[in-house]
Design a protein around this nucleic acid. Structure first.
Lengths: 105, 105
DNA sequence: TTAATATGCAACCATTTGGTTGCATGTCAA
DNA sequence: TTGACATGCAACCAAATGGTTGCATATTAA
C-alpha cells in the first residue's frame, strides 16, 4: 500500500532485475531466481522479502518449493499517482527552464 | 543518464518532497527549499546534489543565491522504458496469478 | 528410512546513507 | 567598508543496507 515501500524496493538494481526475471518467466522458485543472481540464496531471499513488503511480489508455497509471482499493480499506481503529475507539467517546466537559461546569457 | 541514479534519487521521501515542492513552485532558492524541510540546510544540499546527479534538478547561480529547477525528463524516461514494460503485462500477470491461486485450493 | 534438496532464520560485518556541527567563502546592502 | 546573508565544504556519527556464514527445518526421492 505504501508508495514509499515501492519506491524503496525499486531503488536497488538487484531487485529490479528480479522483477525483470519474473516478468520474463512468472512463478519461478527461489532456487530458479537465485541461478541468475550473482549472490547467495540468502541475499536473494532478503531482496524478495523487500519486494513482497512492497506488494510487488506474491509467493505460493508448493511443497518444499516456493513460487514467486510478479504483481505489477503497485508499479502502475506509482505511474498514475506520482509520475503522471510530473508528466503533465513536462513541457511547461522545460519551457520555464529554457527561458531562464536564455535570460542568463 | 543512468536510470539507476534516478531510481536511487526517487527512493528517498525527502527528495520526492523536494521534487514536489519544485513542481509547485519552480526555481526556488536553496533557502526557500530549506524552509519547508525539517532538517539543516546542509542536509537539504546533499539531497539536492543527489537529485542533480540524477539530472532531476538543474541549478542556476544568481548572485549569492542558487535557483533550482525541476527536470521531469528522467522521470518520463523511467515511465517509458521501464514502467511501461510492466504495464503491458499487467492483465496477463494478474490472470496467471489468479489461475495459480485457484488451482491452489 | 535415509539422504538429498529447498527453504528459513539468526548472527555478524563492511559500506552506504542521512543527518549533524563547525567553519570558510562569496555577495549584497547599509 | 563592514556586517549580514546565502551558500560551500569537511569531519564526524548513528542507523540502515546489502551482503556473508552457519545451522535448522521441512519435504521429496532413492
Amino acid at each position: 500500500m505504501s508508495m514509499d515501500a515501492v519506491f524503496r524496493a525499486l531503488a536497488d538494481p538487484t531487485r529490479r532485475q528480479l522483477l525483470d526475471s519474473l516478468h520474463i518467466r512468472n512463478g519461478q522458485t527461489l532456487n530458479a531466481l537465485c541461478a541468475e543472481m550473482d549472490m547467495t540464496r540468502q541475499a536473494v531471499t532478503k531482496h524478495l522479502a523487500i519486494l513482497k513488503e512492497a506488494n510487488l511480489v506474491t509467493t505460493i508455497r508448493k511443497g518444499r518449493e516456493k513460487e514467486h509471482y510478479l504483481n505489477p499493480v503497485p508499479i502502475n499506481e506509482i505511474a498514475d499517482r506520482w509520475i503522471g503529475k510530473f508528466e503533465r507539467g513536462r513541457l511547461n517546466a522545460l519551457g520555464d527552464l529554457k527561458k531562464r537559461l536564455e535570460r542568463e546569457d
